[in-house]
């Protein structure tokens, strides 16, 4: 039987530690992160539980969790961790791994939002909110939430009908391309 206490250097824990650059193995389960997490009540697995599951090599449970997609990146956990673990940074790494391994839950709305947002930046060099909102609605199939907000924002001139492009939009496109090429190598 595999001894989970002995690191082989190729474990899930090692991989997440290497990619996030933070010492997850130092977590001693004080739960300070979970206690102060603003989204704790909405999470299926709390941040300290995610740290423990990573120790135990529970890759599937971690990467398929809804919790990693609920993180608001508020940095309270990373700021307060007595062991200096960048927990919010670990959440970022876990989201990336879940996407790469195609195991993110289909209703991970934050994934659809991030994709729609970055597509907008790729095309215009800046975020074009109106286009991004429509793209997000289609990707998430969540058509009816906040239907009243768009008109309210339009009335306050808080949404623009047309994109405001950056003069460096073509440079941004090139950067996106190079980032993708490097990833494939």
């Amino acid at each position: 039987m595999e001894n989970r206490l002995e690191s082989t250097g190729t474990s899930f824990l090692d991989e997440v530690q290497r990619r996030s650059g933070t010492p997850i193995s130092a977590c001693f389960q004080c739960h300070k992160c979970s206690t102060g997490c603003p989204i704790g009540p909405e999470m299926d697995v709390l941040s300290s539980q995610i740290m423990r599951l990573i120790h135990l090599g529970e890759e599937k449970e971690v990467l398929e969790s809804q919790g990693i997609w609920m993180c608001a990146s508020c940095e309270a956990c990373s700021t307060r961790c007595p062991m200096g673990i960048d927990i919010a940074g670990v959440m970022d790494t876990l989201r990336m791994m879940a996407v790469e391994r195609k195991v993110a839950p289909p209703d991970a709305r934050a994934k659809h939002f991030a994709h729609s947002f970055l597509q907008s930046v790729r095309h215009h060099g800046r975020v074009y909110e109106m286009g991004m909102l429509v793209a997000y609605k289609f990707r998430s199939r969540d058509f009816f939430t906040d239907m009243d907000k768009g008109p309210k924002m339009l009335m306050k001139k808080k949404l623009a009908f047309l994109p405001i492009r950056s003069g460096a939009a073509s440079e941004v496109k090139e950067v996106f391309k190079r980032v993708e090429e490097e990833k494939e190598q």
Binding site: F117, V127, G167, V172
Partner: peptide, 21 residues
């Protein structure tokens, strides 16, 4: 010609892009 900082969508999806933007 400033460009978008990438905000949360970039740092939660691509570590390279999150710095490059």
């Amino acid at each position: 010609d400033w460009v978008c900082c990438g905000s949360t969508p970039a740092h939660t999806s691509n570590a390279s892009l999150a710095v490059a933007l």
